[in-house]
């Protein structure tokens, strides 16, 4: 998966999810999840990161299952003791909702964990004609995230030292972050300009992203074969 062109990979993972949304079948959701999971297994992803992200996903899937199970489409409202009896439609409904969570999360994870962000921006820029000011601005912003996390912790410590209680997302914590973000973005923009970057000027491409046969094959499988299977079976 790592060697696939990011733009093709993006399309190849996005299109099947639209078809999954149109077909309410937990079997296909789980098949899609299993395929993505296999893709992740063969891509040597960082296990710690994978488990860290999958844990809340599984929790959410379980929560969705319980929601779907207790409130099936045919269920009567308000909830009563009778509606808690096990029925195949309730299980089906629960499975449908939870498997969707798993399928969409797996597609996102497969893309995020197997794609280099620099190559992704280059690929999007070349194949989707993404404006370069937006593409490189995105990369620069990425570099600022670790500073944001540090500043967030600093803001909370400053408040605590002054005896002020603040919620994790209270304006008192976020306001200094906002002010600093504006300053950082200005400094970064000046630094990028001083290195010759312009949103409009022509640039050379050191590593052009060429679409390889394997990318075409992936697109065929995900955008043609997969929907055909969904329609036929």
């Amino acid at each position: 998966m790592r060697s696939l062109d990011p733009a093709c990979k993006f399309v190849g993972l996005l299109v099947p999810t639209f078809f999954l949304a149109a077909f309410s079948n937990p079997f296909w959701n789980l098949v899609f999840f299993a395929l993505c999971f296999l893709g992740l297994c063969f891509s040597k992803v960082n296990l710690k990161v994978f488990v860290g992200i999958m844990a809340p996903v599984l929790l959410m899937a379980f929560a969705m299952f319980m929601t779907g199970y207790h409130f099936p489409a045919q269920g009567n409202l308000p909830v009563n003791a009778q509606s808690l009896h096990i029925s195949s439609s309730a299980v089906y409904n629960g499975l449908l909702m939870s498997s969707r969570v798993l399928a969409y999360a797996a597609a996102g994870l497969l893309f995020a964990l197997t794609t280099d962000r620099i190559i992704m921006v280059r690929s999007f820029q070349q194949h989707f004609h993404l404006p370069q000011a937006f593409a490189y601005g995105l990369l620069a912003a990425w570099g600022v995230f670790p500073h944001m996390a540090q500043e967030y912790r600093r803001a909370r410590v400053a408040l605590r030292m002054r005896g002020q209680k603040a919620w994790p997302v209270s304006p008192a914590v976020l306001k200094p972050l906002l002010v600093k973000s504006v300053r950082w973005s200005e400094e970064l923009a000046i630094a990028m300009e001083s290195k010759g970057f312009s949103g409009k000027a022509k640039r050379t491409q050191f590593q052009p992203c060429h679409i390889k046969p394997v990318d075409i094959l992936f697109l065929l499988l995900s955008c043609v074969v997969w929907p055909t299977l969904l329609f036929l079976l």
């Binding site: 620099i118 990369l139 400094e187 970064l188 630094a191 990028m192 001083s194 010759g196 970057f197």
Partner: peptide, 23 residues
Amino acid sequence: PPPEKCAVIGMMFQNPELQFCMD
């Protein structure tokens, strides 16, 4: 324009943390 300007003048700033956009 920036691409021509940087060939004439380069800048080095005070804060080394906010000068880069790649990885």
